[in-house]
Simulated scan of single mutants.
Amino acid sequence: MKTEIKLVDYLASRRSIPAFQMGLPGPSKAEVEEMLKLASRVPDHGKLTPWRFIVYRGEERARISAELKKMALAARPDLPEDLIKVEETRLTRAPVVVAVVSKAAPHFKIPEWEQVMSAGAVCLNLLMAANALGYSSNWLTEWFAFDERAYPLLGVEPGERVAGFIHIGTATVPPTERPRPELADIVTWVGDET
C-alpha cells in the first residue's frame, strides 16, 4: 500500500533521481496514460494545447539511442570511450522516457512565450505525476533536444521543439538533497509589509 503525502510536504522534499540511477519496474501503459492526463492539467491560455507527448518504451529506446550515438560520433569522431557509452544509453537509462514537445507558434492573441511556458508546466506536472504514482523521474534535455537533425529520429515534427525528456522508473538509490537558494537572494518585495 502506497503512503499518502500532503502536497506541501511533497513540494518541500521533491527531488529528481538521475536517470542512470533508475531501473525496473517502470510504469505500465495504463500508468503512463494516467501520468499524461495529470501532466496535461496545466495553465493553457486560449486552450491551444501547444504541446504533445512522444512515449519511448521497450526496444525502440535502444534503437534510437544507437542512432543518436552514430550522430554524435559523426559530429565528434574523437569522442572519448566514456562519452560513447553515454550516447549508447541516451533513452535506455530509465524504463520509460516521455518527450514533451512544444508546438508553440505565433498566434493573434496568445503570446508564444506563454505557450512555451505551458510546455514547461507540463514537464513539471509529469515529474510530479510520476512521483505521485510511486515512480522516480528526471527532466533532461541533452544535445539532441536542440539538434533538429535528430528530430525525425525522435518523432519531432518541423516547427516543433523539445521542452524536455522525462525519464521515469524506479530509483535504485535514495534521493539526496542539494543546496537550495536562500530566499533573500532570489526574492524582491514590492509594497508594504502585511
Rank of each mutant, 00 (worst) to 15 (best):
L83C: 07
I54Y: 00
I110S: 01
T170Y: 07
T49E: 15
P179K: 15
A104N: 02
R161H: 11
F20G: 06
E31K: 11
W139I: 08
T49L: 11
G26F: 07
S13T: 15
P95M: 04
I186R: 11
E67K: 12
E59S: 08
D78S: 09
P27A: 13
P152E: 06
S65D: 02
A30D: 14
E4P: 03
D82M: 08
E31Q: 15
L83T: 00
T172Q: 09
S13R: 14
E157L: 12
R15S: 10
A39F: 12
C123S: 05
S136N: 01
K6W: 00
R57D: 04
L127C: 03
K29N: 11
V116R: 07
A62R: 10
E81C: 04
V173K: 13
P27F: 11
A129E: 01
L124P: 00
A184S: 15
I54W: 00
P158M: 02
L127F: 02
Y56A: 08
M128Q: 02
E160R: 05
P43D: 07
N138Y: 15
L38C: 11
W51V: 06
G46W: 07
E81H: 06
V8L: 15
S16K: 03
G191Q: 08
I5M: 10
L183C: 14
E112G: 01
A150Y: 04
E81D: 14
T49K: 14
P18Y: 10
P80D: 04
K2T: 09
A66N: 07
L183Q: 15
G58K: 06
K37T: 10
L24A: 14
S136M: 06
R90S: 04
Y10V: 10
P174S: 04
P175N: 09
K69F: 05
A145H: 08
S137C: 03
S118I: 10
L36P: 11
E33G: 01
L11W: 14
R149H: 05
G23I: 10
V8A: 12
T194F: 12
R76L: 04
E67L: 05
P181C: 12
G155C: 03
K103M: 08
E67F: 07
S137L: 11
E4S: 10
M128R: 05
V122T: 04
R41Y: 14
A104L: 00
A132V: 03
E148A: 12
D185F: 13
V98G: 00
P179W: 10
E148Q: 11
P77S: 09
E67H: 13
K69W: 04
P152G: 10
D185L: 14
E59Q: 03
F20H: 15
I168Y: 05
T89W: 00
A150H: 01
H167W: 09
